[in-house]
């Protein structure tokens, strides 16, 4: 087990204004007893709404924040006590922070990082070569970081986090604010890291497409607690999210018509398009029943949307 947390919590005291001059102290638990264990080589999606405690957890796992309670080890080390030792064995990308030197070219940042992490020359060169091929760094590697676009900078950040060959890679919102192409590049790159299997990846994101494309396992956190830990399919099963059939008809949908094993969820105003959610029956059975009942023109079967499931999860 490369990451293990038991009963991990972080409390913040905040002063809230009461009336004009009085302030009251409140204790807010940003992370409220999180249990988490991650095996070597896993790729884990860690998601939750704003303020759920995602970043706070990540900061405790990386040794930035001291936990208020619970136990945590990463690579077998206590993150805060062994911060500098651990720092050599993990890589971190915070999407909204930079670990590069603002006024220096990317290449210089990389060579500084080589010294800071004491990476042997040959390893450094090999990893840099791999990253610059996969992420097409060559065109901007001599440009000062402050002049890079967000997408270019993020590619630089990913490289910087991987140059010392970390065992665990923590990514906090790596695709935030990126354009479609840069997002695609970052995802493809991370998928590559995942398939090689020697790096454990923990990814927090708001973009559920990141999760669907990259992570088999999903941990959902809300109000500082884990509300789901399992595969994406398990999540669908648990919330009974259903496949949906959308059918276009030649004649309007007859009022009050029902089909066994499926619910009519919506009918358009003109009655020519109907949406059905499967409830017990297979798609084949429902399509057959549909074709028998009304004149079908077109038809599509849609997988359940992860967004809908997650939204349900947050609301409950």
């Amino acid at each position: 087990m490369i990451i293990s947390a038991r009963g991990l919590r972080k409390d913040f005291t905040v002063n809230r204004k009461v009336g004009r001059f009085r302030r009251e102290r409140h204790v807010v638990s940003a992370v409220d007893g999180v249990d988490l264990s991650v095996e070597r080589g896993e790729m884990l999606g860690y998601i939750g709404p704003n303020g759920a405690g995602k970043s706070t957890t990540l900061k405790m796992l990386t040794g930035v924040l001291t936990p208020s309670g619970g136990e945590v080890t990463v690579c077998g080390l206590a993150p805060v006590a062994k911060r500098t030792t651990l720092a050599r064995r993990i890589g971190v990308v915070f999407g909204q922070r930079s670990q590069l030197w603002w006024d220096l070219p990317l290449a210089e940042s990389f060579s500084l990082l080589r010294h800071i992490y004491r990476v042997p020359d040959s390893d450094h060169a090999a990893r840099l070569k791999m990253c610059s091929q996969l992420l097409a760094l060559d065109e901007f590697i001599e440009t000062p970081v402050r002049q890079l676009s967000l997408g270019q900078r993020m590619r630089g950040e990913l490289t910087a986090a991987l140059l010392h060959g970390p065992e665990v890679l923590f990514l906090d919102e790596p695709t935030i604010g990126l354009d479609v192409l840069s997002k695609q590049a970052v995802r493809d790159f991370l998928a590559g890291v995942a398939t090689r299997g020697d790096t454990t990846v923990v990814l927090t994101t708001h973009d559920l497409a990141d999760i669907e494309k990259l992570c088999r396992r999903l941990v959902v956190i809300d109000h500082g607690r884990v509300v789901h830990d399992g595969t994406v399919d398990e999540l669908h099963a648990r919330y009974r999210s259903r496949r949906v059939i959308v059918a276009d008809l030649d004649t309007p949908w007859p009022d009050g018509l029902t089909l066994p094993g499926a619910d009519v969820t919506s009918v358009t105003a003109d009655g020519h398009r109907v949406t059905l959610a499967l409830d017990g029956a297979t798609a084949g059975e429902v399509v057959a029943a549909l074709a028998g009942a009304v004149p079908l023109r077109d038809l599509s079967v849609q997988e359940p949307e992860i967004e809908d499931v997650i939204a349900k999860l947050y609301r409950s």
């Binding site: 930035v64 500098t84 922070r97 800071i116």
Partner: peptide, 13 residues
């Protein structure tokens, strides 16, 4: 600005 985080993430004091 939250930049102190990145100092804590490096293997140096």
């Amino acid at each position: 600005r939250g930049v102190f985080d990145s100092l804590l993430l490096r293997p140096l004091s």
